[in-house]
């Protein structure tokens, strides 16, 4: 099973998807219609691009042994929903299920070797 399908099947996950860094492709599984999935991929991609630039700058100040860089992903938490992204994979979560730890652990494990050059 692909990571996207695996994530989409986890309790508390509303939808999971993947976008290309070029912005020309996306796939999504779960409870988002195709147009919303496209919007979600545009938004997640934009934040990822910005975050990597910021993390590169941060890296210039981090000392030896600092585990913050390079960037792997980000999390945005709202009152009911959370969005988390690792590499180019995104996940929409329902906060009530409390699934963030499991979801992020799986994403980090499966995407540990994902390239970081955003190509």
């Amino acid at each position: 099973m692909s990571l996207i399908s695996e994530l989409a099947a986890m309790p508390g996950v509303i939808a999971a998807g993947e976008y290309s860094y070029r912005g020309d492709r996306y796939v999504c599984r779960g409870r988002l219609d195709d147009e919303d999935a496209r919007r979600a991929s545009i938004m997640c991609r934009a934040t990822t691009m910005g975050l990597h630039m910021q993390a590169d700058i941060l890296g210039g100040f981090c000392g030896e042994g600092c585990g913050l860089v390079p960037a792997r992903g980000w999390v945005v938490r709202g009152p009911r929903f959370t969005v988390c992204v690792v590499a180019n994979v995104f996940c929409f979560l329902d906060n009530e299920a409390g699934a963030l730890n499991e979801v992020l652990a799986l994403m980090r494990e499966r995407l540990a070797d994902a390239p970081t050059d955003l190509v």
Binding site: G67, V76, R77, G78, F81, V83, V86
Partner: peptide, 20 residues
């Protein structure tokens, strides 16, 4: 745009680095 409410207002942002 979607009517899917529950993100606003944003409560927190998290940055996931390589180890931290």
């Amino acid at each position: 745009m979607t009517g899917m409410e529950g993100f606003y207002p944003i409560e927190g942002f998290g940055f996931v680095g390589l180890e931290w």
